[in-house]
Design a protein around this nucleic acid. Structure first.
Lengths: 125, 125
DNA sequence: GTAATTGCAAATAATTTGCTGGGTG
DNA sequence: CACCCAGCAAATTATTTGCAATTAC
């Protein structure tokens, strides 16, 4: 656990904004001025494999990262691209239903909602 | 509606394998030998905007495309990368719950399951 | 006839990787 | 001291785009 890895994890733990690798890199530079983007990507991959963070790889051309590894729903605004957490209990029974129906071994599932967030509704595009 | 667009749509309608742009391009070449990959991408984008097809942009570094635009669940095998359709009714009530909870305008939602498909379980990796 | 669309090749954008030197336990 | 990991820059991969010629209606 290097200083770089620790810093990246702290940044992700302290925000609920589901940031991009670039944004994380910019924040990390405030603390370690010469940290490289490659290092950010490498550590995001390691932290993901450790189960400490989750990669959100949908809804745009780039990934966002979530410092909360506990399963929860997400909402993606189709206007501004922001990702919000949805505070509703996740239906865990679904996985068992899919297992019974398919015989597949289900390790996880996730649900994303798409639409317009409050701010973007206000802008009436 | 050009011959190229028609061909791409037919290819997608006639398979349930959720192919990649590359695979679609290879198939299309069998019918239109000089069709370009750029044309495939351009038409996939148009067909998606028309609501004829759906882009599955998660679970790997590249997109897959689904010729069935009716909302249904997907399963992504973490071993072989294949995407399967899941024959279970989609919970449409969820969108209303999220709308009530957040005030967001919900246009759609989707759910993906991750794990091991039957073939990959058999291989006991 | 006119606007949309094609093929081709070059450009882009995000992410990954090779290398070499430095830090960690 | 053995190995993992950092920084840097170049490479890779999927996708997008500019342009001149062609096709659709």
């Amino acid at each position: 656990m290097t200083r770089q890895r620790q810093t990246i994890l702290e940044i992700l733990r302290s925000t609920s904004s589901h940031p991009t690798a670039d944004w994380i890199h910019a924040q990390a530079r405030k603390r370690i001025s010469n940290i490289s983007l490659g290092t950010v990507y490498r550590n995001l991959k390691v932290l993901k494999e450790m189960g400490e963070i989750v990669e959100l790889d949908y809804g745009s051309t780039f990934s966002r990262f979530d410092g909360n590894p506990i399963s929860h729903y997400h909402f993606v605004c189709e206007e501004c691209g922001r990702v919000y957490d949805i505070d509703l209990p996740v239906d865990q029974g679904l996985e068992e239903k899919v297992r019974q129906r398919t015989g597949f071994e289900i390790r996880s599932h996730r649900t994303e909602f798409y639409g317009l967030c409050l701010e973007c509704q206000g802008r009436k595009d």
